[in-house]
Every structure is written in structure tokens, then in C-alpha cells.
């Protein structure tokens, strides 16, 4: 199955600001997502990496329309989701689903697994009675669980199994597009591999498109066709995953890749780390010019004054950097 080149999701100049209020007056804004554009083609997986606080999850939630975007367009199959309200969104909720980070907090502890998976079927009136039960069993089977798990409660399952339940719930409405918000970071290494393999199998079986968010760079590379690197509310580099790992162009991407622990003692002792000093600046008052300029080792005067634009340096490889 080769990904066909039809765009499924086009995000254009998306912004999401959160107001900071002082009483009733709005004092300033947290610019969590500040002008992000990218395209995901049908059947493709796009990875999204960046440090915590860079706006990855906010962006995922804005695309899901759990938040109302401040500005910009979210084109899904050519329809702009950004301006829709309330029940207008319902048909799209069926087509875009999400898998959450924390398999412990994202399942309702008072509902049986069958009801958790079946809830979406009820809401969208997809099945009832016997058909509903057989659908739930089929979904559980698809993610490697047993049908009799349907009558149990989430606390009876391990972390990896719970994440499988979360995936079954996302698959229940047969979506086209699934946003995975750090689906494996809470799991053990051996279980991570199980979940990643399963996501890949499901993709080729059902023709799914993924947006895969993570801060673990090793796994992202394994699952993604292309990868976007985010820093302080902006994308700084997008490239297909091979190019990004082989020849990263943005200093932040380079630092991020060199910080990756290498599970090989001989290579680890040889490799040189580019350490980024300090912490990420606050998104309330981001630096003028390039946002990475405060921590960048190649910084020069232009970087401080002028914000770099995203430009294409080779086919499909976009970088926002002056140097």
C-alpha cells in the first residue's frame, strides 16, 4: 500500500492563543500555537516532535476542534473545520479520532471496556443490540484483546492493554484520520514496540492516516513518513523522516537528534552531543525574531531582529532558519 498523494488534512497558518486574565480584562496571551502550516496526505503518517510546552498537544486538540482556533484554517477533505460550530462538527468527529497519552486517565474507571468502546457506536447511532455487541467483540479482537474482556473494568488491565482499549475506542467509528498524542510514552520499551507494530498493521489494513505526536525520537522515526519539528508554537523543520535524520538543517533539530540517547555503548562514547543550554522561553512573551535565537549556537544579528520564514531547500524539506 503506497500512500496516494491526495491531501487529507491541510493546516494553514493555525493559531491558538489562550488569554491570561486579570479580573475581567485580558492581560496578555499565551501563544501556544502560533502560525503552523502543514499537509498530511491520505494513508500517510506525520510525526510531530518537540519538547514539552512547545504546543504539540494544543495543536492536536485544536485540529480535533476540542479547542476553537484563534486564527487559521483546518481543511479536512477540503472542508474548513475551523469555522464550524457545535453539531456541525459531529460528522467530522466520526472521521477524526484521537488516542491519548495517559492510558490510566483516559478511560473512565466506572465503565466496562465494552461500554467504553461502545459509547461512540451509541453516540453516532451506528449499531445497537446484538449488532453492537458483536461489533465491540470484533474491535477488541482487532487490537489483540479477548471478547470476554468487554465485561471487565479498566483497572483490571495493564498499561499496554489499556492503550489497546483506547485504540479500539478510536477505531469504533471507522475514522479516516487518527491523532496519536504520545500514545507510547507511558509504556515500557517492550510494550511500546507491540503498540507501534499494531498501529502500523492497522494502518495498512484500514488505510488510516496518522498524526503521531511524541518526544521519543527513536519511535517516531520508525512509524512516520515525514516528521515536523516544533519549537515554541512554530514548526521549524519539516522533512521526510529519512532526510530529517540524515541531514537535519535547523540547529534545533540537530541538537534534538544529538541529545537522543544511543542504545549502543561504543557509538555513545564516540558521538558528540550538542547540548542546548537553558530552558525554553515562555510562550507568553516569545523572543523577537527567531524563537530559537536565545539558545542557538549559530545566532547572529539577523536572527534576533527578523523572524525566519519557512522555505523549501529540497523537495519536501522545509526549514525556517536564516543560516
Amino acid at each position: 500500500m503506497g500512500p496516494n498523494k491526495e491531501p487529507l488534512l491541510e493546516v494553514k497558518n493555525l493559531r491558538k492563543y489562550f488569554p491570561i486574565k486579570d479580573g475581567l480584562a485580558i492581560k496578555s496571551y499565551i501563544k501556544a500555537v502560533d502560525g503552523v502550516s502543514f499537509t498530511i496526505n491520505q494513508g500517510e503518517t506525520m510525526g510531530l516532535v518537540g519538547e514539552s510546552g512547545c504546543g504539540k498537544s494544543t495543536m492536536a486538540r485544536t485540529i480535533m476542534r476540542l479547542y476553537k482556533p484563534t486564527d487559521g484554517e483546518i481543511c479536512f477533505h477540503g472542508n474548513n473545520l475551523a469555522t464550524l460550530k457545535g453539531s456541525q462538527l459531529l460528522p467530522y468527529r466520526k472521521r477524526i479520532q484521537m488516542i491519548f497519552q495517559d492510558p490510566y486517565a483516559s478511560l473512565n474507571g466506572r465503565m466496562t471496556v465494552g461500554d467504553i468502546v461502545g459509547e461512540a457506536l451509541d453516540i453516532h447511532k451506528l449499531a445497537s443490540g446484538k449488532a453492537r455487541i458483536s461489533m465491540i467483540h470484533e474491535l477488541l479482537h482487532k487490537v489483540g484483546l479477548e471478547p470476554d474482556h468487554a465485561i471487565r473494568y479498566p483497572h483490571e488491565f495493564s498499561g499496554g492493554q489499556r492503550q489497546r482499549i483506547g485504540i479500539a475506542r478510536a477505531l469504533a467509528v471507522s475514522p479516516d484520520f487518527i491523532i496519536c498524542d504520545e500514545p507510547i510514552s507511558a509504556l515500557d520499551v517492550s510494550i511500546q514496540a507491540q503498540i507501534v507494530n499494531m498501529l502500523k498493521d492497522l494502518q495498512s489494513e484500514l488505510g488510516l492516516t496518522y498524526l503521531f505526536i511524541a518526544h521519543d525520537l527513536t519511535m517516531v522515526r520508525h512509524i512516520s513518513d515525514k516528521i515536523g519539528v516544533m519549537y515554541l508554537g512554530k514548526l521549524v523543520e519539516i522533512a521526510d523522516s529519512k532526510t530529517l535524520y540524515k541531514s537535519p538543517r535547523h540547529p534545533y533539530t540537530q541538537a534534538l537528534l544529538s541529545a537522543m540517547p544511543i542504545p549502543d555503548p561504543r557509538l555513545a562514547s564516540k558521538s558528540r552531543r550538542i547540548l542546548i543550554e537553558g530552558d525554553m522561553p515562555s510562550p507568553i512573551d516569545p523572543p523577537l525574531g527567531c524563537r530559537f535565537s536565545t539558545r542557538c549556537q549559530y545566532v547572529h544579528s539577523q536572527c534576533v531582529q527578523e523572524e525566519p520564514k519557512m522555505r523549501e531547500i529540497s523537495s519536501g524539506h522545509h526549514v525556517a532558519c536564516h543560516t
Binding site: V189, A193, Q194, T218
Partner: peptide, 22 residues
């Protein structure tokens, strides 16, 4: 454990080798 970490010389369609079960 070592096998379930993705390797650098990974190929597109390579599957991760996981330890099945819990």
C-alpha cells in the same frame, strides 16, 4: 529488550521485534 529498540539502519517496512505478552 535490545531488539525492541528501533535501530539506526532501519528500513521503511521493517517491523519492530517486540516481546509478546506481559
Amino acid at each position: 529488550l535490545l531488539k525492541s529498540i528501533p535501530k539506526a539502519n532501519w528500513k521503511d517496512k521493517d517491523k519492530l521485534i517486540s516481546i509478546e505478552g506481559t
